[in-house]
């Protein structure tokens, strides 16, 4: 029987499908959620926690990425576990150890009842190729960043149905994009559901979404390949590796400036000073808290950043 498996951050969705289950990235409901969390640090984890515990999200089990990405998830995930939802904790290796990564993937496969459909690895690899092509399309100014972001962020769970998701990918319009500046969006994804549209309205073409790019960059056709790839998940290791990766992408995508999105009470916020010191680009840091449409304060910052990139020498 196919179960719906909630996932709190990136785990290989191909493995969940190969175990004949359906992943549901619990973060994807957060930006449009109406929940005001009872107690919270980061709103991302607090909102999915309450969505699950109040029975608004229909999942059979939960995989908590508790090491190497989101630290608040470890506690909020345990609250969900205590409410009776079968929960598994997944840890990335900080030192990128392939054996440790392989053991974590095996443990996850066991929790999911074992691999039953290896063909799903290849099916999803093919879809990720399409995702990479789409990503390149916006780099080449032939797709809107808001459309591409929506598609890439959905690679966390492939919207629960790879075949239907492929059709969604095929409908994304190819269109010439006009803009005043090319920007990269680094950090965790914005909790504002309209962020990319608002950026576009100020002439900012987002040509790099750091985290969603990881969703399509990583993959593999068997367990060994998955371990070799996912151990390089940039958010999970030393920040030096992440800086190197970001620099490469900023250069390849010819960006004019960088927007660092930070989430209130997320430990990644502390990385802002490091990025400012190590990235040789104008950097705009913005912060969000509860899921809401973009605030006027955010719009002012985006508009001013766009002006600075365009007007100032």
């Amino acid at each position: 029987m196919t179960d719906t498996v909630g996932i709190t951050a990136l785990i290989p969705p191909e493995l969940v499908y190969a175990c004949r289950h359906r992943p549901l990235d619990v973060n994807n409901v957060v930006p449009t959620s109406s929940i005001n969390p009872r107690s919270k640090l980061c709103a991302w984890t607090a909102v999915w926690r309450d969505e699950i515990m109040e029975g608004r999200m229909d999942i059979d089990s939960l995989v908590v990425v508790a090491g190497g990405d989101c630290h608040n998830a470890l506690v909020d995930g345990q609250k969900v576990a205590l409410s009776g939802v079968p929960t598994h904790y997944f840890f990335y290796p900080f030192d990128r150890d392939p054996d440790y990564m392989a053991s974590q993937l095996k443990g996850l496969a066991r929790f999911l009842g074992g691999i039953k459909d290896k063909e799903m690895f290849r099916t999803i690899s093919g879809l990720k190729e399409k995702g990479l092509a789409l990503d390149q399309l916006r780099v080449d100014d032939r797709a809107r960043a808001s459309d591409v972001f929506s598609a890439l962020i959905s690679f966390g769970d492939l919207q629960g149905d790879p075949a239907a998701f492929e059709e969604v990918l095929d409908t994304i319009p190819h269109t010439d994009v006009e803009y005043s500046s090319r920007v990269a969006l680094i950090g965790v994804p914005p909790i504002y559901p309209d962020f990319h549209e608002v950026a576009e309205s100020f002439g900012l073409h987002v040509v790099y979404d750091e985290l969603p790019y990881e969703f399509v960059r990583l993959g593999g056709n068997d367990m060994q390949a998955l371990a070799g790839s996912y151990r390089n998940y940039s958010f999970s290791g030393p920040i030096t590796g992440r800086i190197e990766m970001i620099r490469q992408e900023l250069d390849r995508r010819r960006v004019d400036g960088v927007i660092h999105y930070t989430q209130f009470a997320c430990h990644h916020t502390l990385e802002d000073e490091i990025f400012r010191a190590h990235l040789d680009y104008p950097v705009l840091t913005v912060q969000g808290d509860l899921p809401r449409p973009s605030s006027e304060q955010l719009k002012l910052r985006l508009e001013a950043f766009s002006e600075m990139l365009e007007v100032m020498p």
Partner: peptide, 12 residues
Amino acid sequence: DLRNNTFLINDK
């Protein structure tokens, strides 16, 4: 900071 075209706003 005009040296690198960056800015901070405190409005919270």
